[in-house]
């Protein structure tokens, strides 16, 4: 699971998650890190992790884990 950069200092691990239904390799870290790395504004999205809402105020506190199923949604045009 994952791989570390060579050398003395470990830089980061890559983990596999399911993001919006698609498998994806992401850097380990918090959900806030992931949202930022995707170029998204955390104020405009909502995140669900393994079917549970992750409150926006805790995005930086929740670490991603191997195999997490994440949904990142926002408002789009829609009618009745």
């Amino acid at each position: 699971m994952g791989c570390s950069a060579k050398g003395k200092a470990r830089r980061f691990y890559v983990i596999s998650v399911i993001l919006n239904g698609e498998p994806r390799q992401v850097r380990e870290g918090s959900i806030a890190d992931l949202v930022a790395s995707l170029g998204l504004d955390a104020k405009k999205v909502a995140v669900e992790r393994n079917r549970a809402i992750v409150p926006r105020s805790t995005l930086a506190d929740v670490a991603l884990a191997e195999g997490d199923a994440l949904e990142i949604v926002h408002f789009v045009g829609g009618g009745c």
Binding site: V73, H74, F75, V76, G77
Partner: peptide
């Protein structure tokens, strides 16, 4: 206005 909730295009 009504709006829908959909996946972000990552």
């Amino acid at each position: 206005v009504t709006v829908a909730v959909r996946r972000v295009n990552v």
